[in-house]
Design a binder for these strands. Structure first.
Length: 315
DNA sequence: GGCCCTCTTTAGGGCCTT
């Protein structure tokens, strides 16, 4: 399957899914077992997480459904729909490689993997000293409940608010989960999006050096092992293959530079997790289309958390 | 910290992530 086919088709869905938000409410019935398994050291109260989440209830094999009770807590976690205006959506639509409606109409797309584009905001660059303060992910399949985002209480001072605008005041609230409380929700999100026994492929920019090792350390601090069958792909080395109109390599392959290279409009604040996820979704679409990368080829470039030097050193 | 590039490989500097 051509990745451009997938992404162009999904681009259509992505545009539609931008307006798709709902809340996630942890259901005691489904979450208690995981909570009691993972959180033995401290009795936890079931919390309302404000997110744009979660399970596609019609997905075959989905292990559970979620209520759609919206429970947003102010400025801290705003659903992505609020940062997009109709005019901006029209701009996104103009980025389509071709009219996918004609090509995918009536065609049942067989996805070889669940592709989850994600991003994190942290208190700094050190995976040992710093903590995750925001997590966002978008399932490229799109549709209702395809996104998930939440702030995370790092249990330490945030000193880089100037980067992302996330302050201590926004995080030190009873309704903002700690990472150990986020884990079961994240696992449920992935299970709800996974198709049959097909692989889950996480995509992040500079993910091999930053996002994935950061998550590894967060999971390890919570004494929970990251699923060994999760696959990850880093878009940064892929972007290194790009050349400009003069045939020269791009001077920079930062996400910001790639956004400008592809003339993707900036909506909302950069360095907020869901905003960067949305940008990366479009960059990924353009990138794979330009380099003619297929999903199997993307899977070939993937790695597992056990491949990380940080994980190998732990053995 | 990992990857990429080059004035390289017995190395070192820059990029990218918050």
């Amino acid at each position: 399957m051509s990745l451009s086919f997938v992404f162009c088709g999904n681009f259509h869905l992505l545009s539609n899914s931008i307006g798709s938000t709902c809340g996630i409410r942890l259901l005691k019935q489904h979450s208690r077992l995981i909570y009691e398994t993972l959180l033995t050291s401290r009795r936890q109260q079931i919390r309302h997480f404000s997110t744009t989440v979660l399970a596609r209830s019609t997905r075959k094999g989905s292990k559970q459904s979620f209520s759609n009770n919206r429970h947003l807590h102010g400025e801290s976690v705003e659903p992505s729909i609020e940062v997009f205006k109709q005019s901006e959506l029209e701009q996104f639509k103009s980025l389509q490689c071709y009219n996918v409606d004609d090509k995918i109409s009536g065609v049942k797309t067989e996805w070889p993997a669940t592709i989850l584009v994600f991003d994190i905001e942290t208190t700094g660059f050190s995976r040992r000293e710093d903590r995750v303060i925001e997590f966002a992910v978008r399932d490229l399949m799109g549709g209702k409940n395809s996104t998930f985002q939440t702030l995370v209480n790092p249990e330490k001072d945030v000193k880089n608010t100037f980067v992302h605008g996330i302050s201590n005041r926004m995080l030190c609230r009873p309704d903002v989960p700690r990472f150990r409380e986020l884990i079961p929700v994240l696992l449920q999100y992935v299970w709800s999006r996974q198709m049959d026994s097909k692989p889950v492929l996480w995509v992040a920019h500079n993910g091999r050096s930053f996002d994935v090792p950061f998550l590894f350390y967060e999971f390890r601090r919570c004494k929970v092992e990251m699923p060994g069958d999760w696959l990850f792909v880093d878009t940064r080395p892929i972007a290194n293959q790009l050349v400009d109109s003069n045939g020269s390599k791009l001077s920079s392959v930062s996400l910001e530079n790639l956004r400008e290279h592809y003339k993707i409009p900036l909506t909302g604040s950069a360095h907020r997790a869901m905003q960067d996820v949305t940008t990366l979704c479009y960059v990924l679409q353009k990138l794979t289309f330009e380099l003619k990368l297929t999903v199997p080829q993307l899977l070939e470039k993937s790695f597992r958390v056990s491949d990380l030097p940080a994980a190998r050193h732990e053995r």
